[in-house]
């Protein structure tokens, strides 16, 4: 697993993908941060983080689109699958590498807070708990999205299909968050908000540690990682 993790991580930065992703991520996050906190004269990063997780719908598929599809297309998966590594090891190695690149960018974007802390008005200082909560929640949502992306990538040989497919699924989650309030039926609304990744985000932005949400996010990611493992194993059986 470590070998795959290291190779994957290095491959992000020996090809343009890692740089392109980082550039786009930092550009988008920088723009949104400037717009939603600095320009809005607010020291609260919750609106920034809520917008970012919508941005993730377009951003994170870039990170995961090739993880398995490229291996299939170039038949390099033969090496991995005939090595003494379990399917779980392969999937986790790849998943954690994507997650690390994402987390690295998220960490980099924390630099913004410094400027915020410096210029925040005295009557509304930056709240450490709320800020940390926002970034932590962003990390959790990202981890879920990357799991979805890795899973979709394991289904196809085509990077573009993987990216667009992932965006479609993530857009569904975003759509629930945006339009759920317009649904008349109480039952449907409740069910949809239950599976919504976005609705669990809110407590973190108030600086509350929502253990139920944490568990939800972790299990959501775990389910998709598990599905990816199944797909990888199943490849032998068809």
């Amino acid at each position: 697993m470590t070998a795959i993790f290291k190779r994957e991580l290095r491959s992000y930065f020996s090809t343009p993908l890692g740089y392109v992703f980082s550039a786009v991520y930092l550009a988008v996050s920088g723009f949104l941060f400037a717009l939603l906190t600095l320009r809005a004269s607010s020291s609260d990063v919750s609106s920034y983080s809520s917008m970012m997780i919508f941005g993730f719908v377009a951003l994170l598929p870039l990170l995961t689109m090739r993880s398995f599809s490229e291996e299939k297309r170039l038949k390099t998966d033969a090496l991995l699958l005939t090595s003494p590594v379990s399917a779980t090891g392969i999937v986790l190695g790849k998943y954690l590498a994507s997650l690390t690149v994402f987390a690295g960018n998220l960490l980099l974007s924390c630099v913004y807070i410094i400027s915020l802390g410096k210029y925040a008005a005295e009557h509304s200082p930056v709240s450490p708990a709320r800020t940390f909560g926002c970034f932590f929640a962003m990390f959790l949502v990202g981890a879920c999205f990357i799991a979805v992306g890795t899973f979709v990538s394991s289904l196809t040989e085509n990077q573009v299909v993987a990216a667009v497919g992932t965006m479609a699924i993530l857009s569904f989650f975003a759509a629930i968050a945006l339009f759920n309030g317009m649904i008349d039926s109480y039952a449907i609304r409740t069910v949809l908000s239950w599976i919504s990744l976005y609705s669990r985000f809110t407590n973190f932005t108030y600086g509350m540690f929502d253990f139920a949400a944490l568990l939800y996010y972790l299990s959501f990611a775990a389910v998709f990682v598990f599905l990816t493992v199944r797909v990888t194993e199943r490849r032998r059986w068809i």
């Binding site: 190779r7 491959s11 170039l74 038949k75 390099t76 998966d77």
Partner: peptide, 13 residues
């Protein structure tokens, strides 16, 4: 040790 029909090489390495 296995050499498949298409060698499993990572081109960027």
């Amino acid at each position: 040790g296995y050499l498949p029909e298409q060698p499993p090489l990572y081109r960027e390495m």
